[in-house]
């Protein structure tokens, strides 16, 4: 999950685009293949996008899965604000709608997010999913893994591994939210 908004980068901030629209499209497509491959199809899967940019990514994955396999995968949305471990430190965040399209019991929930960083968002997302029911398994798909984990979390599907330093910000922009598809590294 990125924190900075697309339009507030200082003009002088050094910014380096690491994935363009085509690269993002290919990465999502590859992840869709990997998911299908691992599960030998799309049955009993549910894709849960983590707000904000995980939600359109989950929809894109579902779209690609449908193209590849002619199968429909239910897509939901997950807001993890109420499950985060930094509420006491940071304070309240805006709450988005959480939506489980199907009962997760016995299914594999694939969490979808844009950036995997400390792993804390994923931990919160797992708690949010478990609060809803008991899935057979939880997996994780991320567009970018930038390292610097603080929790024992590992992604099952990664669009791009991106070595970064802690001082850098990885900015993911998606057409649905930001009008453009791009991943860049910025040094504030």
């Amino acid at each position: 999950m990125t924190s900075a908004r697309a339009d507030d980068a200082a003009p002088s901030a050094p910014s380096r685009t690491v994935l363009d629209a085509d690269a993002i499209r290919r990465a999502v497509r590859r992840m869709a293949h990997e998911i299908l491959e691992r599960h030998a199809g799309a049955a009993d899967l549910v894709l849960m996008g983590v707000h904000t940019r995980g939600v359109p990514l989950a929809r894109r994955l579902a779209h690609d899965v449908a193209q590849i396999e002619q199968a429909t995968v239910p897509v939901g949305a997950l807001d993890v604000a109420l499950y985060r471990d930094d509420y006491a430190r940071i304070g309240p965040r805006p709450l988005e709608r959480t939506h489980f399209p199907v009962d997760t019991e016995g299914r594999t929930v694939v969490l979808v997010d844009d950036v995997l960083y400390t792993g804390r968002t994923v931990r919160a997302a797992m708690e949010a999913v478990i609060a809803e029911g008991r899935p057979a398994a939880i997996e994780l798909a991320v567009l970018v893994d930038r390292g610097h984990r603080e929790l024992p979390v590992r992604a099952d599907y990664v669009g791009k591994n991106l070595p970064t330093s802690a001082g850098e910000v990885v900015r993911v922009r998606l057409e649905e939210h930001d009008g453009v598809d791009a991943v860049s590294i910025e040094r504030p």
């Binding site: 999950m1 900075a4 940071i90 304070g91 309240p92 965040r93 960083y117 400390t118 990885v170």
Partner: peptide
């Protein structure tokens, strides 16, 4: 310094900080 996991102050809901 703002880090990846932090939320910008102006992204907070208006009721926050009451």
């Amino acid at each position: 310094m703002m880090t990846q996991d932090q939320i910008a102050l102006d992204e907070r809901p208006a009721g926050a900080g009451l």
